[in-house]
């Protein structure tokens, strides 16, 4: 589903590359943790998948297609196939929960009828039944992140990218979010989640890819992660 072929990303020529000759294969339906210390290149990986940035060397394939060969007018179609969630939720503060999720369908031209039908289903999937008309500031952080997840998957993307989705949440709330992501993954969506939360990684027992200074230093199926503290907690 996602393939990195010897990908190097240099933001500028002086400093060392954010990604350094990374080769990686993520299969359809997989759940992959992308772990590593701050600055190790996790967000850069996600940006390259979205074609927000171009690889300096090597090739990035999404669903079998080299993203470098996608013309700019076709990039929106690439992104429709990928959902993204961030640490800071990125909700529209003046829109209701329903409107925030509906927004993702409106801008790609879905009909009102389809939106009315789909959005409540998706909100139920992420555990937000009955909160359609709340404003974002009336929700807890975990609930806001659920809205963001609902928005990311409402157009049924094949891939969900999550960049430290639990970074702002306490451990219990984080586990709730992980359950939601796991359920989405069970439904067939490929999930790549960047994190440095070792508790979560060790509880979930999924594939772990560890980056250090832009290089893949470990790639374990059902792996664990030893965080920055160096203390094995899982």
């Amino acid at each position: 589903m996602i393939r990195f072929d010897n990908v190097t990303k240099n933001y500028d020529s002086k400093s060392q590359p954010a990604l350094d000759a990374v080769s990686l294969d993520v299969d359809r339906g997989e759940f992959v943790f992308l772990v590593g210390a701050s600055g190790s290149g996790k967000s850069t990986f996600i940006r390259l998948v979205l074609k927000e940035d171009r690889a300096s060397r090597g090739a990035v394939y999404v669903a079998g297609q080299n993203v470098a060969n996608i013309p700019s007018w076709r990039v929106p179609r690439l992104r429709r196939g990928i959902g993204v969630v961030f640490q800071d939720f990125r909700l529209l503060p003046n829109k209701t929960v329903f409107a925030n999720v509906a927004f993702a369908m409106q801008v790609i031209g879905r009909s009102r009828a389809v939106i009315r039908e789909t959005v409540p289903d998706v909100l139920a999937t992420v555990g937000l039944e009955g909160k359609n008309n709340r404003m974002p500031h009336e929700l807890s952080g975990g609930e806001q992140q659920r809205v963001a997840i609902a928005r990311a998957i409402v157009n049924r993307p094949g891939i969900l990218l999550a960049d430290e989705p639990t970074g702002n949440l306490d451990p219990t709330t984080s586990m709730g979010i992980m359950k939601v992501l796991d359920r989405i993954n069970q439904n067939g969506t490929t999930v790549v989640m960047a994190t440095h939360d070792d508790d979560i990684v060790n509880t979930m027992r999924k594939r772990v890819v560890e980056l250090r200074n832009g290089s893949v230093v470990r790639d374990d199926a059902q792996g664990i992660y030893v965080g920055e503290t160096g203390v094995l907690t899982g």
Binding site: P76, L78, R79, L92, F103
Partner: peptide
């Protein structure tokens, strides 16, 4: 904020 989200969910340049 809006345009950033539009971009991420794949809105076309025209929209």
């Amino acid at each position: 904020r809006e345009t950033g989200i539009m971009r991420l969910v794949g809105a076309s340049k025209a929209v």
